[in-house]
Amino acid sequence: MTKLRTEALRKSFGDLEVLKGLDLEVTEGEVVVIIGPSGSGKSTFLRCMNLLEEVNEGRVIVDDVDLTDPKQDINKIRQNIGMVFQQFNLFPHLNVMENITMAPKQLKDLSGDDARTLGTRLLDSVGMSDKADAYPSSLSGGQKQRVAIARALAMEPDIMLFDEPTSALDPEMVGEVLAVMKKLAQDGMTMVVVTHEMGFAREMADRVIFMDEGLIVEKGTPEQLFGDPQNERTRDFLDKIL
């Protein structure tokens, strides 16, 4: 069943057209990895999927609901789409537990106890239960990103968007974050991941998308895309990074 779909998606910043008509379909439980050179529009594409970035043309459809329809309550829909950022964006004035429970408390009227139970369960799942009362400034990058993932899961979304979740990490911390993401994927989460971690893409992706200059140049299974790229530009890109 289709979980998320974009149709002829276009996006410009001023005169600069960044996305030039993108069609993508993500089925339930699928892990889609987006790769491509810097500036090709990967982040912008991902941010259009929860309308953090306004869309100029085309549609974004999640669970048969058109997000670009102004009549839709975008706040309601976003609760169903978790997002993890390259720079973590944890709330520095709140401790780890509060970072996670703030949104459910505000939006689901969760009691303090219920919120704490939820927070503890999520922290457990990312291996951070001992840091519940710590403030973000005292955490390592890997720990921050694991908390950020737990926070994104707090509204119990069925889709998770990841924008280069390991790019800001020291190499020795990449593994712990990828492990959390793998577990999520194995549990059946629908995921769209922008990443340069080709190992993760090979192992976990159901499909890999190669983007360049605002277009989807090629898509396929990891075996097809990495093993037998059809497009010249894909081959160039893969040659450079592998």
């Binding site: 976003r78 609760q79 978790g82 964006n89 505000q106 939006l107």
Partner: peptide, 21 residues
């Protein structure tokens, strides 16, 4: 940091709540 508002909005918090909290 702009990322703060974005992270809050991505969780589904309305603008006013995101600003306030």
């Amino acid at each position: 940091d702009k990322g703060q508002l974005e992270a809050a909005r991505s969780l589904g918090l309305p603008y006013a709540v995101a600003m306030r909290k």
